[in-house]
Nucleic acid binder design. Structure first.
Lengths: 337, 337
DNA sequence: CAATGTTGCTCAACCGATTGAGCATGGAAG
DNA sequence: CTTCCATGCTCAATCGGTTGAGCAACATTG
């Protein structure tokens, strides 16, 4: 059996199948994509072609198929990292839900690099993605503009943007609740409210700012002084959080609001190197099953990933007429024993 | 400005650009894909077309481009899960390294569902992936056969297959080292060697079998009895590990070899509900930064993800003539204080 | 001044699937 | 015996880039 100019094997096309089956390429095409009944192809021919396709190991060429069709059903997602539970869960559930909707999910991980984010968005556009979901990007509006120019919908997940619908956690409320819990537990442990640090995140990151606002609100509410020098926002990485801890002068009786499990990695590594600080209490915005078992941890804030993704697909299903207003979902506070 | 039969805006094509620039579509194409010097297009025309492309927000249609070109540069990967550090690191580093090689990585997560694995492989074939990397699949040989029929290379990562090159951790050696460490530490803690459990993984999973073999070798070597009823392999999920622990009658002085952080989630959740077992020691095959801080944890086995991926791309660069023999990489044992 | 080479492009076929239009054939109705 | 319709297909254009072949216009060489 030879195909494609005499070279044997490799990727049969509908033309190969048509020749073998003694049918026309258009018949084969419609049989394989399911439109054969509408096109009045007999069941006998359909059965024969399907058998031959199977024998030949035929797989449609999506490039050719999508070139002609009007919809690609591709939905792209940009994520900053895979290496923590939060984004891992987002990626995994996104794939599952997209597939359940008959879409083809393509996720790409952009390491919080603004240029890579933009390049990845371009690339997904080139692949004719119909929708682009942007998570944890530095400049979502730039991506939204790029996509809008090509008529591609974008939706911001877990970050706000002014040019596209955004789905967010209630970072303010979540942080306020977590701060309250930390203060309560630390006060119980130490007999009095200890100084409270805020560690992790980025100065100009919207989520970080909102969480800091919630942190501050809880401090104010309980009459705790808010000290700007105890706010450490060195960026998202365990190393940076660790380095920031080095610079902070943390007393033996202290409490820490840790902004993300990424920062928590640095914080606990540092605390572990300073056994005199065994009494220090912390709480963390974001959830991790192992971090939840650390003895100094008083509670973790779990973001409602399933809820956010359900909301995401609701917005997608609703079509283009959705507003750019942000949808906020409450977080789940998980106090620890 | 109208394009595509009078409808305004949406996705300009090279034909639109050609019309605007007063050039031919082939000139525009070669300018935008970088082959214009070879095709003797003047720098002036090139500059003009590039400017117009930018103004119009042009992005190449990969579907059309790939249809004609002979190489797609797409490299696919199948991963079972994203929600743990091991596969998170694999996915992330794979993307980074693939991009550095000028490839377009497409990762899909298949939830350890054999049918979904196969479907995902088909799908990646349809997108003209040139290479498919299979991780954690139930039946890698079935996928290898499918791909071989289309002339697509497959490479197994972290699992052995007979139909494609495989890159593996030295599960036997890693498990033997970890078991030794667990026995040593538990003996130190209890004064005598306690009964040793093996928890996690699947009965017919190659990696689990190899680790069990290493576990057993270390038991034999140190004169510890190997008790089959203390081997619990309920499958990969925290819930299953938890349930298995419920059935096991673990004494206060015991030690556990935990096969994967996924199983560890269930094990520690269970241990946490049984405070009388505070003394129980465990070690875990796979690494996690927070699990590493749990007081009962004596050590974790880190698989050499970077090394495996370096090996993977070495095999890919070497081209088709690589053998189907397995390449084994040593694991890194990380003892904990 | 003819032959030759170089520059700067354009033409048209092609990749593989999709799809609107249309063409035989056979049976039923008038 | 014609007309009409249903059935079961095939034809050919098309999607948007890519690429080998080729063509003017001009410069250079003998």
């Amino acid at each position: 059996m030879t195909r494609k100019g005499g070279v044997s094997s490799k990727r049969p096309t509908i033309y190969d199948l048509a020749r073998i089956a003694g049918a026309s390429p258009s018949a084969v095409s419609s049989i394989l994509n399911g439109s054969w009944e509408k096109r009045r192809i007999s069941a006998a021919t359909a059965k024969r072609v399907i058998r031959i396709a199977q024998e030949q190991g035929y797989a449609v060429n999506r490039q050719a198929s999508l070139l002609r069709r009007d919809r690609s059903h591709i939905i792209g997602m940009i994520v900053p990292k895979y290496d923590n539970r939060y984004f891992g869960a987002i990626a995994e559930q996104f794939e599952t839900m997209a597939r359940a909707k008959g879409l083809f999910p393509v996720i790409t991980c952009t390491q919080r690099d603004p240029e890579l984010e933009f390049e990845a968005a371009r690339e997904l556009l080139s692949y004719q993605a119909e929708t682009l979901v942007v998570t944890g990007a530095t400049d979502p509006d730039r991506i939204s503009e790029l996509c809008a120019a090509s008529g591609v919908r974008t939706i911001n997940l877990d970050l706000p943007g002014s040019k596209a619908p955004s789905i967010l956690s209630d970072n303010f409320g979540g942080a306020k609740d977590l701060t309250r819990l930390i203060l309560k537990r630390a006060t119980e442990a130490f007999g009095a409210a200890p100084p409270l640090w805020f560690v992790g995140g980025r100065q100009h990151d919207h989520n970080s700012m909102e969480r800091l606002r919630g942190f501050r609100a809880a401090c104010d509410e309980s009459g705790q002084p808010f000290a700007p020098q105890r706010v450490l926002m060195p960026g998202y990485s365990p190393q940076k959080a660790f380095a920031a801890m080095e610079g902070a002068e943390i007393p033996q009786q202290a409490a820490i609001f840790v902004n993300s499990t990424i920062a928590l990695e640095g914080v606990v590594r540092w605390l572990n190197q300073h056994p005199s600080l065994k009494a220090v209490r912390f709480g963390c915005f974001d959830w991790d099953p192992f971090a939840a078992l650390l003895p100094q941890n008083v509670g973790m804030t779990e973001q409602d990933v399933t809820g956010m993704l359900a909301e995401l697909f609701r917005v997608i299903d609703a079509g283009g007429q959705s507003s750019t207003a942000a949808i906020k979902l409450p977080c789940i506070l998980r106090p620890l024993p």
